[in-house]
């Protein structure tokens, strides 16, 4: 293929990748920003969203879009509840100790993975896209649904932005993030804010999972790559910084799309993981972040 269509395809793929990544990584970032903990089970919430979409598609009669819309509402809701429960049952009890949180969310990751394996089996499950139309460029065809993912991601990110900046909920979150103890003294229910934030973070991942599943199949091990890439994005973008996260997601999604067209995907992954490690070692505030307290 010539270089121009090659680049066009790589850019399109990169944009789709960046959109999914933005949603997933924002979830991780919001949680870290407010609660200062790293949730290793984040990729599993993504996977649960995808599996949820499949279950909805199975159970809902009628056209595929009906199941899809249902999934878009039901799957994040269930995942959110689950996350809130995990927060109450585990994280609160270890007082959000950063290291203990990592270990116990690793445990949570294994549990979710294996429960899904035992309940839904090891097969990858396909879900029909809500609409099916291929855009034909002169050189290749491209799924219109993939472009819908990009639009959906932009809308959702905008909605989250409004929530954080313009509403009381966002204010509570920011207050808690700024100084937990003072917030507590001012009567902010820090516990509930934490549960809520953890749930919202998980829901973001679940929505990304629902969006992605008509493209990729739902599979109990599918959470691994999104987790890793979200780590990359959140760290490069600066831990807890939302604009930084978005910028990094777009940058990394696009460059991953481009890189893996020209190099092998494994090499691209090696480069990005090393990048994260080196950013943390030499510029711990992230490439876009300002120095944190």
């Amino acid at each position: 293929m010539d270089i121009a269509p090659y680049l066009l395809l790589a850019t399109l793929e990169g944009l789709v990748q960046a959109s999914v990544l933005t949603l997933t990584a924002l979830g991780l970032s919001v949680v870290f920003g407010t609660m200062r903990v790293v949730n290793v089970a984040h990729g599993e919430f993504f996977m649960l969203g995808a599996v949820g979409a499949w279950v909805c598609a199975m159970l809902m009669p009628g056209p595929p879009w009906l199941g899809f819309v249902t999934a878009l509402i039901v799957a994040p809701a269930i995942v959110g509840l689950l996350a809130a429960a995990a927060d109450w049952a585990i994280l609160k009890r270890i007082d959000y100790d950063p290291e203990a949180t990592i270990i116990s969310t690793i445990g949570l990751m294994y549990i979710i993975q294996q429960v899904v394996l035992m309940t839904f089996g090891p097969n990858a499950q396909a879900v029909d896209a809500p609409f099916y139309y291929t855009i034909r460029f002169p050189w290749f065809g491209y799924s219109s649904y993939k472009l819908f993912i990009v639009v959906a991601a932009i809308v959702l990110v905008f909605a989250l932005w409004r929530l954080m900046k313009g509403s009381r909920v966002g204010l509570l979150m920011r207050a808690t993030q700024y100084d937990k103890d003072t917030a507590q003294n001012f009567g902010i229910p820090v516990d509930r804010v934490y549960s809520g934030v953890f749930a919202v973070g998980a829901m973001m991942a679940a929505i990304a999972g629902v969006l992605v599943v008509p493209n990729q199949q739902a599979h109990y091990l599918m959470g691994h790559d999104p987790l890793l890439l979200s780590f990359v994005v959140v760290i490069v973008g600066g831990l807890g910084s939302i604009p930084g996260t978005i910028a990094a997601a777009v940058l990394i999604g696009l460059s991953d799309g481009l890189l893996s067209v020209f190099f092998t995907p494994t090499l691209a992954k090696i480069a990005s993981t090393l990048l994260v490690a080196l950013v943390l070692v030499f510029k711990p505030e992230g490439l876009f972040g300002k120095a944190t307290r």
Partner: peptide, 16 residues
């Protein structure tokens, strides 16, 4: 087949 679930539970139980 899902023996990892025990690993997961133990990680959490030990931490708690």
């Amino acid at each position: 087949t899902a023996y990892l679930i025990v690993v997961g539970v133990l990680l959490i139980v030990m931490t708690l």
